[in-house]
């Protein structure tokens, strides 16, 4: 094929996907405000996305906070002795502003996005989504909206937990391994932290929650035939959500922390 035509085809396909995804997202949100509502489905998804992601998000945050404290100490010790206040500052700002929401988003993309794509993909292949429509139930309203709403609500809550556990991880290393003064570390942490740092992280988390759930649902809902179709939908859901999280994180950081 002519390279120009190939590029043109790629651009057209990209815009077609963006258009379909935008319509899909708009439909998911519009159904959140129009009855009938499915509170049981929302509760179930809050449990699946939120509560069941706690272990993976908590462990990620704990070890990230620990490594961050250890690496910061190693780095600072090359230039000056001590650096207690700087390490507390680095840990808390890195966790609340960036690592908490981004790592939680990526872990949830792997756990929740993949599971949503696989579940909805299987429902598509086995005609369960068609069956919903024949039973006078709107599949968007019943399957998609509860998942997106759950992502929007629970990912920020998970990031609050991740922030606390991440800072605790840094504290354990600083006090337990490096021998820093515990009360001084906490005072430095709280003294550095501003409301804006936490809120910006939570805003990012809400955006990432929507990205993960929308892409998981989109790929599952439009899954191809057979096991290969469901497998591709799952892979695409995780890869596209991960890339979009990293991409949107850059732009959100630029807007929220513009110099």
């Amino acid at each position: 094929m002519n390279p120009l035509a190939y590029t043109g085809r790629g651009v057209i396909d990209l815009f077609a996907v963006i258009g379909r995804l935008s319509v899909f997202t708009a439909q998911a949100f519009s159904h959140a405000f129009r009855p009938p509502f499915y509170p049981r489905m929302v509760r179930r998804q809050l449990w699946e996305v939120g509560y069941r992601s706690l272990p993976v998000v908590g462990l990620t945050a704990l070890f990230t906070g620990m490594v961050l404290a250890l690496q910061s100490y190693t780095g600072f010790s090359r230039f000056s002795a001590g650096g207690e206040s700087a390490i507390a500052t680095i840990v808390v700002l890195s966790i609340t502003r960036e690592l908490g929401p981004v790592l939680a988003g990526l872990m949830i993309a792997g756990r929740v996005g993949a599971s949503m794509a696989a579940e909805l993909g299987t429902m598509r292949v086995t005609e369960q989504i068609d069956a919903l429509a024949t039973l006078s139930t709107n599949p968007y309203k019943y399957l998609i909206t509860p998942r997106v709403v759950a992502g929007l609500i629970t990912v920020p809550l998970l990031v609050v937990v991740a922030d606390i556990i991440g800072v605790m991880g840094g504290y354990f290393i600083a006090v337990g391994v490096l021998g820093f003064n515990g009360s001084l570390y906490i005072r430095n942490t709280l003294g550095t932290l501003e409301t804006h740092d936490v809120l910006s992280g939570l805003l990012k988390a809400a955006v990432f929650g929507v990205i993960v759930t929308v892409l998981g649902c989109y790929h599952g809902f439009n899954s191809g035939r057979g096991a290969q179709g469901v497998g591709s939908a799952t892979t695409n859901a995780v890869v596209s959500a991960s890339i979009l999280i990293l991409l949107s994180n850059y732009f959100l950081t630029q807007v929220l922390f513009a110099p």
Binding site: T122, M123, T126, E127, Q128, D130, A131, T134
Partner: peptide
């Protein structure tokens, strides 16, 4: 009402 080929029951 519809009976699907694979029954399409909700798992």
């Amino acid at each position: 009402g519809m009976l699907f080929q694979g029954a399409a029951l909700f798992d």
